[in-house]
Design a protein around this nucleic acid. Sequence first.
DNA 1: CTTAATCCCTACTTATTTAGTATGAATTAT
DNA 2: ATAATTCATACTAAATAAGTAGGGATTAAG
Lengths: 137, 137
Amino acid sequence: MVISTRGRYALRLLLDLAEHADEGFVSLKDIAWRQDISLKYVEQLMPQLIAAGMLDTARGKSGGYRLSRPVGEYSLGEILRATEGSLAPVKCLSTDENLCPRKEKCETLPVWTELDRIISDYLDGVTLKDIIEQKNQ
Amino acid sequence: MVISTRGRYALRLLLDLAEHADEGFVSLKDIAWRQDISLKYVEQLMPQLIAAGMLDTARGKSGGYRLSRPVGEYSLGEILRATEGSLAPVKCLSTDENLCPRKEKCETLPVWTELDRIISDYLDGVTLKDIIEQKNQ
DNA sequence: CTTAATCCCTACTTATTTAGTATGAATTAT
DNA sequence: ATAATTCATACTAAATAAGTAGGGATTAAG
């Protein structure tokens, strides 16, 4: 399973924000209620989306969140990388320090690399706009 | 992470068998040693590969395993599905009984479905033969 | 200027999955 | 008979996923 609830929920809340973009700042409480996701859990996804420059926020009463870009400029790849950390389908590809010692001679590495490329290419090519317009197939 | 050690090790041991196909039945002990994988762990992968009809086996002394088909007839998809259970990138797609209640109205399901298709298409198109001949990119 | 709603921050908990270990029975060539 | 093998099952430890919990900081609204 590449993609956990973190990434899936992040995508849904960004879509929710996109669909309520005309309402100014939207509170997480409303989003969590509409999406039927725990408020406290969704709160934990926000720092990473903010760090990625995807959101404007307003603190305090009647505060909330707002998309900071046009919907066409959010790719699924960016959203998922921000929340999941990596989209690599095998550990061998995670660019952590703990590289596989078999790396050099490994016969199977090329297929994982190619699979990774295919996944990234697809996810980087789909935007929130595509999903809203149901252009995803 | 879609693919765990189960699938990766299974692939490596099938490749090892392919490369020693001229030696008749090859013992797991030899394979595990060459591949530097715990014998006891690899043993646990075998039942699923056998159930999938990928191997001939010989029990008892000087027994072992042997590929039961030409290398071109083992796709990566088949190997990984047999050992991993599913290649679905999100839980929503696992055809278990616990289907997501949002399924009907879910805006994001189509992208997961398409991603799943892309992954499967690639993995079903690569065989052991391709890997041995390094045709995988 | 107080209050209530909100974002923000950090720690904790529980369930599931992953990656093995461990023990030993059944089988069979030597 | 023996030793090397597959085969079967149970157990364990570590990591990850998924969520809870509590409260501090900020600010619009009354």
